[in-house]
């Protein structure tokens, strides 16, 4: 994978001497690749996930297209073609965007083995995120792509063929995956202060899916709920990449929403970085 998420370069390693940046990229590239390979180990689960996504895809398409028809051919800015694309693309991204809030790191913080991670010359936040993103990107092969192909072949989905739109769509999807794991890192990092992070995790699971637009597009929300959703990073996890990939939002507007994604990535990364620093200090105080 040749993915070097731009915003991460603004990390704390910025102040390292020249050459350190390329080392940083190489190390994190390796972590990403090793996560990707680990993803390949769970083939049975990936197949099961594909079946689940396809089943839900059909169910969503039928109820959402019925809703568009009942709404006179348009619903919250979606016509029939757009809503079909919405249903399939949300299922395609579901295997890679973490809306469940669970990571291995939460367990490592809980049982204290994160202390070992903190001793390594690697930043815990960037290193775990690189690995998790790698694993999630693998899921695009057995789950994401087949669902898109199926959606086009039997689900009646049409996608734009213009390379610039597709490239921007791919970038937006990658940003969504990255953002989800940066958010889930925050969930795990609360473990530095609380014994049990399951409450935060469950809350993330419930809130993130709803506000990301997993059930219905966020644009259908009543005004106050819509405003609330837009004040969170969650629409950038599903609604934004889906709109950009399907071409429903294009041109300058598309660049704008991807810019919002980038801003969320930077902000969430910064919060995670501060939490890691504070958490490390807290562990050192406790350990000393």
């Amino acid at each position: 994978m040749r993915l070097s998420p731009g915003p991460q370069r603004r990390g704390p390693e910025q102040d390292l001497p020249r050459g350190a940046a390329s080392t940083w990229l190489r190390v994190h590239g390796r972590l990403l690749a090793s996560g990707f390979r680990r993803g390949a180990a769970y083939r049975g689960a990936a197949l099961g996930g594909l079946v689940a996504n396809v089943t839900f895809g059909f169910l969503k398409v039928s109820v959402l297209t019925a809703a568009v028809a009942a709404g006179g051919g348009e619903l919250g800015g979606y016509d029939e073609a757009a809503i079909i694309a919405y249903a399939w693309l949300s299922q395609a991204l579901l295997g890679s965007v973490n809306l469940f809030g669970r990571t291995d790191l939460a367990d490592r913080i809980k049982d204290g083995s994160v202390a070992v991670d903190l001793l390594r010359p690697l930043d815990v936040q960037t290193a775990t995120t690189a690995q998790e993103v790698g694993r999630a990107l693998f899921q695009l092969l057995p789950r994401g792509l087949p669902i898109i192909v199926l959606g086009v072949l039997v689900g009646g989905m049409r996608l734009p063929t213009d390379p610039a739109t597709l490239a921007l769509g791919l970038l937006s999807a990658l940003l969504a995956v990255l953002l989800s794991f940066l958010l889930v890192y925050l969930v795990a990092a609360t473990g530095f202060w609380t014994v049990e992070t399951r409450g935060v995790q469950v809350l993330y699971m419930i809130v993130s899916g709803f506000l990301a637009g997993l059930f219905v597009p966020v644009t259908l929300f009543p005004q106050w709920l819509y405003a609330l959703a837009l004040a969170t990073p969650f629409p950038s996890l599903l609604q934004v990449p889906i709109d950009v990939i399907s071409g429903r939002v294009d041109g300058a507007a598309a660049l704008g929403v991807v810019g919002v994604q980038v801003a969320w990535v930077a902000a969430v990364f910064a919060v995670g970085h501060l939490m890691t620093r504070a958490g490390r200090r807290r562990l050192e105080v406790q350990g000393g």
Binding site: G44, L47, G48, V51, A52, N53, T55
Partner: peptide, 13 residues
């Protein structure tokens, strides 16, 4: 044994 998500598709679907 490895693909309980497959049956979950039918149960939770």
């Amino acid at each position: 044994v490895d693909a309980s998500e497959m049956t979950n598709a039918v149960v939770y679907g």
